[in-house]
Design a protein around this nucleic acid. Structure first.
Lengths: 132, 132
DNA sequence: TGTTTATCATTCATCTATGAACGAGACGGT
DNA sequence: ACCGTCTCGTTCATAGATGAATGATAAACA
């Protein structure tokens, strides 16, 4: 059962990854852009790592790559000189919008196979399993 | 919804990974041992990669590490000199059995929170989502 | 005030995964 | 028998993730 769920989700992930790669994004990059877009203001890397459920060292590298892609910029925090903030560039906003369209499309295709009561049931069950 | 499912499964994965690490196994290593144990005979690396749903180059490295752990051995295929077979060492069999106990325990804890109709529903829904 | 403690991001080593390029070997058709 | 093609595993470059160690800075407190 565990391997079955892992397999199903890995399939979803691979599909989404493939779709996002058409616009030069990975799932991790897109998730990072999403949280930055949602925040609507510069976010410290540590907080960003928390929202993305990853460790800080990972976020450091991720922002390195996003900065190389010119989708994100590092800015310094005037109130705390230890802190480094990340913010979306105009191109980052655009790319995130494209990614969001792709995600919506994939979700539509995936859940089209489920009737309505099943969609609700799945949501409920997944929430039950999360946060043990 | 997609990020919710991804999050729930990543949590499961992280828990299992942490539990397996107590006996020096990763989830990938354990999955590989499982398929070898199930086969009960040497398996070509390509076939093993297919069963583990990963690419061959990944299986090459995985078997490198498992061989370094003395859990797996490479043997040559008399019928095809291109082929390399992997087989469990006695220690590999033991370690797999320990891992299987840990997996069973984790599954028990996880699904203890679900009543019976929910368990069946979850299984059905996950199978529906798999193999688009 | 000065010192300890905690927090921030980064670097490094390691593991897992992919895809492209490669060399060795099998195999089908001519 | 030979040639092209396909399949095998490996290597390499790269992406992504973790945890441990580090240096800079803030905060707490004696």
């Amino acid at each position: 059962m565990t391997f079955l769920m892992l397999g199903a989700v890995h399939e979803m992930e691979a599909n989404l990854e493939a779709a996002l790669s058409r616009i030069g994004l990975s799932l991790s990059k897109f998730r990072t852009l999403s949280h930055l877009a949602e925040a609507k203001e510069p976010v410290p890397l540590g907080a960003l790592a928390d929202r993305c459920s990853c460790v800080r060292s990972n976020m450091t590298q991720l922002v390195d790559r996003l900065e190389a892609d010119r989708l994100v910029e590092r800015v310094s925090d005037p109130g705390d000189r230890r802190s480094v903030l990340a913010t979306l560039t105009p191109e980052g906003w655009e790319r995130h919008a494209e990614g969001a369209r792709i995600l919506a499309e994939m979700e539509g295709q995936l859940f089209a196979r489920l009737e309505e009561p099943d969609r609700a049931a799945l949501t409920r069950l997944v929430q039950l399993l999360k946060s043990s």
